[in-house]
Design a protein around this nucleic acid. Structure first.
Length: 496
RNA sequence: GGUCCGAUGGCCGAGUGGCUAGGCUCUGCUCUGCAAAAGCAGCUACAGCGGUUCGAAUCCGCUUCGGACCUCCA
């Protein structure tokens, strides 16, 4: 197994990854609250964990990847009296809350597919785990960390912090939190402003409500993640991920709930937090009005976009930055990524067509190259360094194609394996016909034959120095996106 | 106000106490009927000020600027 180092947000250090039960790995990532369309910032987080998931599998782990759908409990606004986000949309549009949930879950799945983000092993929903959430609340009450007020149950942070540390993940001190908590209206039920709801009493006006030992109500936010991660991954599991902005209070509360229910002081080994996607240096967020939907990005239909970009370009662009750094979104950066991706894909195409000799080139060390690729990913999933390495390899490939250097067939085969492994399987970049159906491929092959005929015809014309007609053919092909490249050995062509 | 993070060349974006990141752009050359690619070469930076060190963009301190979180947010 590769020696993998992960930056653990909990310790704020890079640590050697050691699975609790190798080769099995349990990984939980906070999924979306499905009350609106996902934007690119959301996509970035799921993409980051997609690559983490892919790499863990790639180096031989059997990952159970759980990514939830939050479909109840998330409240609007900054008080505990806020309406449920999904319930609110349902009320406004006069539809069932589950219709809202279904609509945006579908959207979420569509977007994930477009960006080639793999589905998780389990995608549990909060509403599907009401029973588990109720029993978890019971345990927390039994353990003395929650109290009942007017049909609602709250977690007592003060009480909990007497027995266990609270605020370790986000680096908060409980007393500072107390002093800095803003005075908010409508929190009269809580004994302490830091406390958070496990179960909320619901009157008749609420659309989403379930019976519980404490009356009719609905579960609090935070709780579903604790309950579902424990249910599917155990009281202690390997990796928990999510966006940076969930660190506090969401993840902090999750830890408190896990411990509060199970009294296991160390429920999660490695915390991984993805950083934000920014626009002009500011976090992409709906409230800022700077959020792009994936559709706007692909069509280019947005005031900040000069034109559209393909999903693979966007995927590649995001992977050119490290997941733990902020990444700034701009037309220039996207265009650079597009060209870079094209170069990479072209290089792989060239590699596929390459044929080599018997004698290996001593100056090209394929194993060292492979090591470099692994090392990049082993260093906290450093995709930008991996990509830089892959570009270095492209130079070797192109130099071989230009007959500047020579490689043996064996070296070429090894190189191709590395590119397929890292580009397709680890980075999740689709570069050619690899994912097309057989019919599509055979159609493409027909077109290929047609193009070859034209290119051959043009070569004949060129031999007769009939430049006018030769150029005519080149122009026609270029209208269909086919570029001809002439060299001493003859003409080759490529499709963009 | 509190907590934390960041500041890298024309742009994006890695990185490490001493050894070329990489991509894009730009310039020159090679190749070439022209073109397009590709190759080669050039432009070569680490916010500012101090300190530690044989040596710091990399460690420490201060300053300036920016961001995130502290309320829902991936």
């Amino acid at each position: 197994m590769q020696p993998l180092y992960i930056h653990n947000s909990l310790s704020r250090k890079k640590e050697l990854f050691e699975a609790i039960n190798p080769p099995h790995v349990g990984m939980y990532v906070c999924g979306p609250t499905v009350y609106s369309n996902v934007h690119l910032g959301n996509v970035r987080t799921f993409l980051s964990f997609d690559v983490i998931y892919r790499y863990l599998e790639f180096i031989g782990y059997k990952v159970r990847y759980v990514r939830n759908i939050t479909d109840v409990g998330h409240l609007v606004g900054d008080t505990d009296e806020g309406e449920d986000k999904i319930g609110k949309i349902a009320r406004l549009q006069k539809i069932e809350p589950m219709e809202v949930v279904q609509k945006y879950t579908n959207d979420f799945h569509d977007v994930m597919r477009v960006f080639n983000i793999l589905p998780p092993s389990i995608e549990p929903t909060a509403t599907g785990h009401i029973i588990e959430q109720i029993s978890s609340i019971k345990k927390i009450i039994e353990n003395g960390y929650a109290y009942l007020v007017n049909g609602s149950v709250y977690f007592s942070v003060r009480k909990f912090s007497e027995d266990y540390p609270y605020g370790e993940l986000s680096g908060r001190k409980i007393d500072e939190l107390m002093n800095n908590t803003r005075d908010l209206d409508g929190q009269s039920d809580k004994r302490d402003p830091l406390d958070f709801a496990l179960w909320k009493n619901a009157d008749d006006s609420h659309l989403m409500r379930w019976p519980s030992p404490w009356g009719i109500g609905f579960p609090g936010w935070h709780l579903e993640c604790s309950v579902m991660s424990t249910k599917y991954l155990g009281e202690e599991f390997d990796i928990h991920g999510g966006g940076m902005d969930l660190k506090f209070p969401h993840h902090e509360c999750e830890i408190a709930q896990n411990i509060g229910a199970n009294k296991n002081p160390n429920p999660i080994r490695y915390w991984i937090h993805g950083n934000m996607l920014t626009v002009n240096g500011r976090k992409m967020a709906k409230s800022e009005g700077n959020g792009f939907t994936p559709e706007e990005l692909i069509t280019g239909n947005h005031k900040l976009l000069e034109r559209g970009y393909s999903p693979m370009t966007v995927r590649f662009f995001m992977l050119m930055g490290h997941y733990a750094s902020t990444l700034d979104f701009s037309n220039d950066a996207l265009q650079a990524a597009e060209k870079g991706l094209k170069k990479l894909c072209k290089g792989i195409d060239t590699l596929i067509k390459l044929s080599g000799g018997k004698v290996p080139n001593e100056n090209v060390d394929i194993n060292a190259f492979k090591e470099k690729c692994y090392n990049a990913m082993n260093d906290d999933f450093n995709t930008p360094v991996l990509i830089a390495t892959l570009f270095d390899g492209i130079k070797t490939i192109n130099a071989t194609a230009e007959k500047i250097i020579e490689l043996s067939q064996n070296q070429i085969d090894q190189l191709l394996k590395i590119y397929v492994d890292f580009v397709e399987h680890v980075l999740g970049i689709e570069w050619d016909t690899a994912f097309k159906t057989e019919e599509e491929v055979s159609m493409i092959m027909n077109e290929v034959n047609l193009v070859e005929q034209l290119v051959n015809l043009r070569s004949e014309l060129k031999e007769n120095k009939d430049w006018d007609n030769a150029d005519k053919i080149r122009n026609i092909l270029s209208e269909f996106g086919i570029t001809i490249k002439d060299s001493k050995e003859g003409s080759t062509w490529s499709h963009e």
